[in-house]
Design a protein around this nucleic acid. Structure first.
Lengths: 156, 156
DNA sequence: GCCGGAAAAGGAAAATTTTTCCTAACAGGG
DNA sequence: CCCTGTTAGGAAAAATTTTCCTTTTCCGGC
C-alpha cells in the first residue's frame, strides 16, 4: 500500500474529509472513508497523537468580535545573533495581538500580522509595544483593505 | 449588564474559554463560565448561529503533511477596476495552495501566503498559475525561513 | 499452496456528551 | 404588584465517543 509521510490512503482520506467537514461525527466520517467507526476512530486518534492533526480550533469572526483591522508589519531587526532572535520571538509570542509572524527573505526581517479594533488602536500598539520589542530596528506597516481569503485548510 | 458587540460578559467568557480550550465539553465549559449546561449550550449555539463562531476547524501540521514551505507573494495588479479585482479574487479562491490573501496598502496590491511541498513546487505554481491569474502585473516572492507564530486565536 | 502470527477491521455494549423538554427564577413595563 | 418575556436549571432522551472482544486480512516462512 502506498505510504506518504507514514500515512496510507485511508489516513489521507480521513484528513481530507475532516478538513472539509470538521464537525463530522465518527460514524459519518467512517461512512465517508469506507470504514466502520472503530478503526476509523483509532486512526483519527493516532493522527492526533502523532500531531498530524495539530489541534482543533474554533475560529471567530474578527469583525464580530470587534477586531476588524488587520495590519501587516514588516519588522527589521538590528542584529541577527541568536539571542536577539530568541528575545524577539519570545516577545512576539507573548503578545496575542500578533497572530502571525514569519522570518522572511534574505535580509532577515519579520512579517507580522497584527489584529486590532481600529487604526488608532494599532497605532498605540505600534508605538507602545512593537517598536520597543527586543532588537527592532524599524517597522513598516501596511493595512489590509480587504480580506480576500483566509483559511486553515491545506491542499492535501 | 455590560454589552459589547451584542454580547454580555458570559458570552465573552464562553468565547475566551472555547478559544483557549476548544475541545472542552459543554459540561466542562459550563463549569468554567459558571452556568449549568443547558443555558451554556444555548449560548454556544447562538454564537455559532450568529456567526461569531465562524467555524470549527482541525488544524494540520504543515510539515507533517508535506507542506513545509510557506511563501509570501506580493502581487501587483495591472488595472484596478472592479472586474479585474473580482476575477483575481475568484482565481485566488479556486487555488487551495493560496491559504491567505489580503488587499494591502495604497498601491493596491495583494499579499498572499502560498503553501507548497518544496521550493521547486512553488516555482512551478508561480510560473504555471500565479503569473497567469487575471490582472497580474508582477509577483514578488519571499520565502519564509522560519515560522515564529501562527494562531487562530484572537485577543478578546 | 498452507500455516502462524501480527496488524487492521468489525460488532456490540458501556460511558460520556449533546440535545430536548419542561419547569423555575428573574427583570422590566404598565 | 402583577404580567410578560427572557434566561437559567434539572431530568431525561438521543446521539456520539470510547472500550472490549472477536473476526478478518495480509505477509513471510515453510
Amino acid at each position: 500500500m502506498q505510504m506518504r509521510n507514514g500515512m496510507d490512503d485511508t489516513d489521507w482520506k480521513i484528513l481530507r474529509t475532516m478538513q472539509a467537514e470538521p464537525e463530522l461525527s465518527i460514524n459519518a466520517l467512517a461512512d465517508k472513508v469506507g470504514l466502520s467507526h472503530t478503526p476509523c476512530w483509532r486512526r483519527l486518534k493516532k493522527l492526533e497523537e502523532d500531531g498530524v492533526i495539530a489541534s482543533r480550533e474554533i475560529v471567530l469572526d474578527q469583525r464580530k468580535v470587534g477586531l476588524g483591522v488587520d495590519v501587516f508589519a514588516n519588522v527589521r531587526i538590528t542584529r541577527h545573533d541568536e539571542d536577539t532572535l530568541e528575545a524577539f520571538a519570545g516577545a512576539v509570542d507573548s503578545h496575542p495581538q500578533i497572530v502571525e509572524c514569519f522570518l522572511v527573505g534574505g535580509d532577515s526581517d519579520y512579517l507580522l500580522r497584527v489584529v486590532a479594533g481600529s487604526i488608532e488602536e494599532y497605532e498605540r500598539f505600534l508605538k507602545k509595544v512593537l517598536v520597543h520589542m527586543p532588537g527592532v530596528a524599524s517597522v513598516n506597516s501596511s493595512f489590509a483593505m480587504r480580506r480576500i481569503k483566509w483559511t486553515t485548510r491545506l491542499p492535501i
